[in-house]
Design a protein around this nucleic acid. Structure first.
Lengths: 343, 343
DNA sequence: GAACTTTCTGCATACGTATGCAAACTGAAG
DNA sequence: CTTCAGTTTGCATACGTATGCAGAAAGTTC
């Protein structure tokens, strides 16, 4: 099974040159004469030689590995982001080492330790926060961190999110303009900045119209919790006629409960608005009105922030917020003459 | 930014012992006295020392990295598998390095080259095939490969799939028993074994009942292609009254077309059956009858095969097929007295 | 306490590559 | 042909860890 590896020394021997020469041929930007390059490449070709990235990392201190920490891939937003992140980083010669965690500090800390053991060049956490101790450790070993879709008050952590407060506010405006006065909120997890900010935005938007949230339950970014919340809120006789659900993933569950359990019409009886605009939201079965998180631009910002730190030695912490449009579809009543931002 | 790393030498110095001693303390199963261990661990703790996995790999020839090659994460089956694979491997001290590819040989070969550069201990491809040349190269460097959810006629490649032929056959039986005689097939990509086997199973099952497939179009595992196929097949006046769609991901698109474009009732006018049983299939909006690919057991088989090769030096190639039950839900007419396999 | 076995420790070296330095070479200018 | 600058090459060493070997220490038995 185990087979003898072919190393730069073997190539050097065959080509009749020094090992350093071989190394230089495979190092972009090094000083090599054309005939040397040719000789070496021919020998390398013949032996099937390829540089050992790990050995290289040991010397250069760069592994070209980015650690991605992610809690759950059930919500379509994350596989989508993962795919885009991976593709974007690959184009720059980096690759993603995936670490699954449950969303509690202990688990994150443990896993993050393993991550650092791999000498990763940078860390992206997708919708996962980290303890201060951990942030300090990453800073201490010089590994930049970007929180993707999660904010945290730590002046060492970069972060890229959509403008969650503004998004919540926009949704409030939209619902009010649609004539809704009794508006429920099944919130994103209150332990996350995204959940809190969206809720705060909603409240601010409603307040501006002199309205208060009719009822608010924490949906924990979880289908079951959100379903239960929907049952509770919409079984009552004086039920609200609109609900903003903290993300699309929960909104689908809520719509299912409304339609198939409570036999309510969406949007006839209840308007439903989500947050994220995952691909599924545009499928006709749900046709969900939702605030789009521009994952392309979020990924772009994440990658360029990370590479800035890694390759250009940048060290100013970025707290990037990206605005997204409200995607108007069929799950919520559309106010007369409401402008379609997507155009 | 760059910070001085703490190495085993530093720890050794502080603890007043040799570097080897430090190494041994961090190597499970090495011979160390209790007081030595205590001294070293104390010093390590104080300095925040953790072994450098890369340097260790260089010596041991084991990176504890598994390369995962995957084409697209849009189909919910794959993020789900990725999550489970990652969690399972993590439990064994391995981690997943993700490589996204488009599904053509060139792209796969290029990416797989990079993969080998990382000295991965093993490779899993999710629904991606590989060229013979590549299989040879992996074999040559002693890196085991497991094809997850994809078969290929190569005696060097392990593979784990569901029993696709039998699944297709089961579905044929089910539809026939339901009284359907005019049965369409929107097939999985004919360039993949899964697509071909499911189709062959369907045809065999129908043939046993003296029926031929009414119409068959390759859906390419793609939503748009499948939608177009559904439009074509079900716009005709003498349309079929049942369709087996090659996977759930396409089946959702097909149901959307049937219901929302063609205003057909599912299952009243048309029975729809999918393949995979992704989480979304059980959500009330689709409530899709589908053949379950037991991803838990598939992941288990994949991991144990891989670890067998890596850790126990196994070298018998596994071609594992796992049977899955038909999940009976509301998208297809249920034959009288049909036994529910799920019980 | 001697003789022996067992457990532990340090020394030295190896893994595969990158890079500073000095020597060797190249070519142009005088 | 000499001189000099610029380019290319090889030598030696370093990165951080694991491990075979031999010697030291500890434990066992009589």
């Amino acid at each position: 099974m185990r087979v003898e590896k072919v190393t730069s020394v073997d190539v050097a021997k065959l080509a009749g040159v020094s090992q350093s020469a071989v190394s230089r041929v495979f190092t972009p930007g090094a000083s090599v004469s054309p005939k040397m390059a040719e000789k070496v490449l021919k020998a390398a070709q013949e032996l099937g030689y390829r540089p050992n990235v790990l050995a290289r990392s040991l010397i250069t201190g760069r592994s070209r590995i980015i650690g991605l920490v992610v809690a759950y891939l059930e919500n379509q937003f994350y596989p989508d982001a993962l795919e885009k992140l991976s593709t974007a980083l690959q184009a720059h010669g980096y690759h993603i080492l995936v670490f699954m965690v449950s969303n509690d500090d202990d688990s994150v800390d443990k896993v993050m330790g393993e991550l650092l053991d791999y000498q990763v060049d940078g860390i992206i956490t997708a919708s996962v926060g980290m303890s201060n101790a951990l942030a300090a450790r990453c800073a201490a070993v010089g590994v930049p961190v970007v929180l993707f879709n999660r904010g945290q008050d730590d002046e060492r952590l970069n972060q890229v999110t959509s403008n969650n407060f503004e998004g919540g506010r926009k949704i409030a405006e939209f619902l009010v303009a649609g004539g809704h006065r009794k508006i429920a909120h099944i919130a994103g997890w209150s332990g996350s900045s995204t959940g809190r900010d969206r809720e705060a935005g909603l409240r601010a938007g409603l307040k501006a119209a002199g309205i208060d949230v009719a009822v608010c339950i924490d949906g924990m970014y979880n289908r079951e919790t959100a379903s239960a919340a929907a049952r509770e809120i919409f079984s009552a006789a004086d039920r609200p006629d609109a609900v903003f659900v903290g993300n699309d993933h929960m909104a689908f569950a809520v719509m299912d409960v409304l339609r198939f359990e409570l036999k309510l019409d969406v949007p006839g009886d209840v308007s439903v608005v989500g947050y994220d605009d995952v691909p599924l939201a545009s499928w006709p079965a749900y046709d969900l009105t939702t605030l789009r998180q521009p994952s392309n631009r979020m990924v772009e910002a994440t990658v360029s922030t990370l590479l800035g730190w890694i390759e250009e030695g940048s060290n100013d912490v970025q707290k990037i917020q990206i605005d997204g449009p409200l995607m108007i579809r069929g799950s919520a009543r559309v106010p007369e003459g409401w402008p379609d931002e997507r155009l």
